[in-house]
Amino acid sequence: QTIHNGDQTYHYDNPEEAIKVAQKLAKIYNLTVTVKGNTVQVH
């Protein structure tokens, strides 16, 4: 599972963990989380 947060990319073995982290980032920075296959984008 990969999270793209602007210019930063994070890799997680656990998809659920990746989505949790993405949602935390989204709340902190007031962003949107988009899940596309194995990629979670925060923008």
Score class of each variant (00 low, 15 high):
Lys20Val: 05
Leu25Glu: 02
Thr2Trp: 13
Leu31Asp: 02
Gly6Asn: 09
Glu17Thr: 14
Ile19Arg: 13
His4Asn: 10
Gln23Arg: 08
Asn38Arg: 02
Glu17Ser: 05
Tyr12Trp: 03
Ala22Gly: 06
Tyr10Val: 03
Asn5Pro: 11
Leu31Met: 07
Ala22Lys: 01
Val35Arg: 01
His11Ile: 14
Glu17Tyr: 07
His4Met: 11
Asn38Lys: 04
Tyr29Glu: 13
Ile28His: 11
Thr2Phe: 12
Lys27Ile: 13
Lys27Pro: 05
Gln41Cys: 15
Ala18Val: 01
Asn30Gly: 15
Glu17Trp: 07
Thr34Cys: 08
Val33Thr: 03
Val35Leu: 05
Ile28Ala: 05
Asn30Ser: 06
Val40Ile: 10
Val35Ile: 06
Tyr29Met: 04
Lys20Phe: 09
Ile19His: 11
Lys24Glu: 14
His4Ser: 09
Ala26Arg: 14
Gln8Gly: 08
Leu25Pro: 03
Lys36Asn: 12
Val40Glu: 00
Glu16Arg: 07
Asn30Ile: 04
Ala18Cys: 09
Tyr12Lys: 00
Gln1Thr: 12
Ile28Met: 08
Gly6Leu: 12
Gln41Phe: 15
Ile28Asp: 15
Glu17Val: 11
Gln41Lys: 11
Asp13Ser: 13
Gln41Ser: 11
Leu25Phe: 04
Ile19Thr: 08
Thr34Val: 08
Thr32Cys: 11
Val35Phe: 02
Val40Asn: 00
Ala26Tyr: 06
His11Gln: 09
Asn14Arg: 04
Asn5Glu: 10
Lys36Ile: 14
Leu31Cys: 11
Thr9Lys: 05
Ala18Tyr: 02
His43Lys: 07
Lys36His: 13
Glu16Ile: 07
Val21Phe: 12
Lys20Tyr: 09
Glu17Gln: 12
Glu16Met: 07
Val40Lys: 00
Asn38Asp: 03
Asp7Leu: 14
Val35Met: 02
His11Trp: 11
Lys27Leu: 15
Thr9Glu: 09
His43Ile: 08
Pro15Tyr: 09
Tyr12Pro: 01
Thr32Leu: 10
Thr34Gln: 04
Val42Cys: 07
His43Ser: 05
Leu31Thr: 06
His4Arg: 07
Asn5Arg: 12
Lys27Gly: 13
Gln23Asp: 11
Lys20Arg: 13
Thr32Asn: 09
Glu17His: 06
Lys27His: 14
Lys20His: 06
Ala22Thr: 01
His43Glu: 04
Tyr29Asp: 10
Val40Leu: 06
Ala26Ile: 14
Gly37Gln: 03
Lys36Tyr: 11
Asn14Pro: 03
Ile3Phe: 09
Asp7Ser: 13
Lys24Met: 15
Thr34Trp: 04
Ala18Arg: 00
Pro15Ile: 08
Lys27Glu: 15
Tyr29Val: 06
Gln23His: 10
Pro15Arg: 07
Ala26Asp: 12
Leu25Ala: 01
Gly6Met: 11
His43Trp: 07
Asp7Glu: 08
Thr39Gly: 02
His4Trp: 13
Glu16Pro: 02
Thr32Ala: 07
Gln1Ser: 13
Ile19Pro: 00
Gln41Trp: 13
Thr2Ala: 12
Val33Met: 02
Ile28Gly: 03
Thr39Ile: 11
Val21His: 09
His4Ala: 09
Glu16Tyr: 07
Ala18Thr: 01
His4Gln: 10
Gly37Arg: 01
Ala22Leu: 04
Lys27Asn: 14
Asp13Ala: 14
Gln41Ile: 15
Leu31Val: 09
Val40Met: 03
Val33Gly: 00
Gln1Pro: 12
Gln23Gly: 04
Val33Cys: 05
Ala22Pro: 00
Gln8Ala: 12
Ile28Glu: 15
Val33Asp: 00
Leu25Lys: 00
Lys24Cys: 15
Asn5Tyr: 13
His11Ala: 05
Lys36Trp: 10
Lys24Ile: 15
Lys36Met: 12
Asn5Gln: 12
His4Pro: 10
Lys24Ser: 09
Tyr10Phe: 11
Tyr12Glu: 01
Tyr12Gln: 01
Val42Tyr: 02
His43Pro: 01
Asn38Gly: 05
Leu31Ile: 09
Asp13His: 08
Gln23Ser: 06
Gln41Thr: 15
Leu25Ile: 06
Gln1Met: 13
Asn30Trp: 13
Gln1Phe: 08
Gln23Tyr: 07
Val21Gln: 11
Gln1Leu: 11
Gln23Lys: 10
His4Tyr: 12
His11Lys: 07
Val21Leu: 06
Ile19Asp: 05
Gly37Ser: 02
Leu31Asn: 03
Val40Ser: 01
Ile19Cys: 13
Tyr29Leu: 07
Gln1Asn: 10
His4Gly: 09
Val42Trp: 02
Thr34Asp: 03
Asn14Leu: 04
